[in-house]
C-alpha cells in the first residue's frame, strides 16, 4: 500500500466464519446490509462445528437432532447463495484499530480494509494444562481435548492408545467416547468437583456405555514420563489418598476462554477475569460500531443459543449502519 492510498471501505466486516459469524452475516443481510465481508482463517466455513461430529446440535433452532457439520452446512449453504456476502477464506486478521481498520493475511497477500460496522465472532480457545497447575514432566501426549478431537475427526490421527481425561465437561466426555469407539482405552475421567459439568446424557452415553470410570473429587496431581506420557498420579482431594494410572495420553478438558486479542489491540475494554468484553448488553463492547458475538462474547453451552444471539448481533450492526453519524 502506498502512503496516500486509503484502505477499501466495506459496510460490514465480520471476523470468524463459525456459527456466530455465519448467523450474524445472514441476519445482517436480511436486515438490509448488502455489502458484507466475512473473514475466515480456515479453508472452510463452519468453525469448530466441523470437528464436532456427534449429535445434539439444533434441538432448539431447527427442532432436529443434528451433528455439528450438518448444523454448519445449513448456514454455509445459505451464505453461498447470497452474493452480497463475500466469504474470504484463509484470511487471518493480524491487526485491528479502534477506528475499525483491519489488516489480514491471505495466501500471498496482505489486505487492509476499513469497516463501517464490525462484528467479531472469533470464538474461544481451550484452557490448558498450565492453567490448572499439574505438576510433573512435560512429555509428548498431553493435549487439550478439543485439539485431540480435531486430530481424530479432521486429520484422521489417533493421538494415543491409553488415555486419562482431566475434567468431565462435555468435550472431555465426548472425547472419552470417541477414543473408546476408535479402539483406544480410556483409563479414567478425573473430575475435581462433586459432579460432572457435562450433560447427563453425555455421562451415560459416553462413559457408562463404555464402562469408563469417572472419579469425582479427584485431580491429576502429576504427569510422569520422559519423552512420552508414561503414567499419571491421581489424588483424592479430600482424603489426599493417591494412586497411579499408566497411560500414554492425557486430555485436558478444563473449560474455554473467549478469544479477544484483536479487540484488545483496538483498546476495547476486556474483563480480565472472564476475557469477555466489558459490556452493557449482549453483543456490545466499549467501542460503538464494534459488536462481539458467540463464544468470543461469552462461552455458551449450546450452539443454538450462539445462533440466537448472533442473529441479534447482525440486526444490531444493521441498525448501527442506518443511524445518522
Amino acid at each position: 500500500m502506498t502512503r496516500d492510498s486509503r484502505p477499501a471501505t466495506r459496510d460490514l466486516v465480520i471476523v470468524g466464519g463459525g456459527p456466530a459469524g455465519m448467523a450474524a452475516a445472514i441476519a445482517a443481510h436480511e436486515a438490509g446490509v448488502k455489502d458484507i465481508l466475512l473473514l475466515e482463517r480456515d479453508q472452510y466455513l463452519g468453525g469448530i462445528l466441523n470437528q464436532c461430529i456427534h449429535t445434539g446440535f439444533g434441538l432448539h433452532h431447527f427442532k432436529e437432532d443434528l451433528t455439528g457439520p450438518e448444523y454448519a452446512d445449513r448456514f454455509i449453504k445459505r451464505i453461498e447463495a447470497l452474493p452480497e456476502i463475500e466469504a474470504s477464506l484463509r484470511s487471518f486478521v493480524v491487526k485491528l484499530t479502534g477506528d475499525k481498520v483491519l489488516t489480514y493475511l491471505k495466501p500471498g497477500t496482505m489486505e487492509v480494509v476499513k469497516a463501517k460496522a464490525l462484528i467479531m465472532a472469533t470464538g474461544c480457545r481451550e484452557r490448558t494444562r498450565e492453567m490448572v497447575h499439574i505438576a510433573g514432566t512435560r512429555p509428548a501426549g498431553v493435549y487439550p481435548a478439543g485439539l485431540a478431537q480435531k486430530m481424530i475427526n479432521i486429520e484422521g490421527w489417533l493421538p494415543g492408545k491409553e488415555a486419562v481425561i482431566v475434567g468431565s465437561g462435555d468435550i472431555g466426555l465426548i472425547m472419552a467416547r470417541r477414543f473408546a469407539l476408535e479402539g483406544a482405552k480410556v483409563k479414567a475421567v478425573i473430575e475435581v468437583q462433586k459432579e460432572s459439568r457435562g450433560l447427563v446424557r453425555n455421562v451415560v452415553q459416553c462413559l457408562e456405555d463404555f464402562a469408563i470410570p469417572l472419579y469425582f473429587r479427584h485431580r491429576v496431581a502429576r504427569i510422569m514420563g520422559k519423552d512420552r506420557v508414561e503414567k499419571v498420579l491421581i489424588e483424592n482431594v479430600e482424603t489426599k489418598e493417591s494412586f497411579e494410572l499408566t497411560c500414554d495420553t492425557v486430555l485436558i478438558s478444563v473449560g474455554l476462554i473467549p478469544e479477544n486479542e484483536l479487540i484488545e489491540m483496538a483498546c476495547v475494554e476486556i474483563d480480565s477475569m472472564t476475557n469477555s468484553p466489558v459490556s452493557k448488553a449482549v453483543n456490545l463492547c466499549s467501542i460503538p460500531g464494534i459488536f462481539v458475538c458467540g463464544n468470543s462474547y461469552k462461552v455458551y453451552d449450546l450452539v443454538d443459543s450462539v445462533t440466537r444471539d448472533s442473529i441479534k448481533a447482525g440486526q444490531m450492526a444493521a441498525d448501527y449502519l442506518r443511524e445518522p453519524k
Partner: peptide
C-alpha cells in the same frame, strides 16, 4: 439403542 457418529477415510 444409540446413534453412531464417526468418520470415514
Amino acid at each position: 439403542l444409540r446413534i453412531l457418529t464417526t468418520t470415514v477415510l
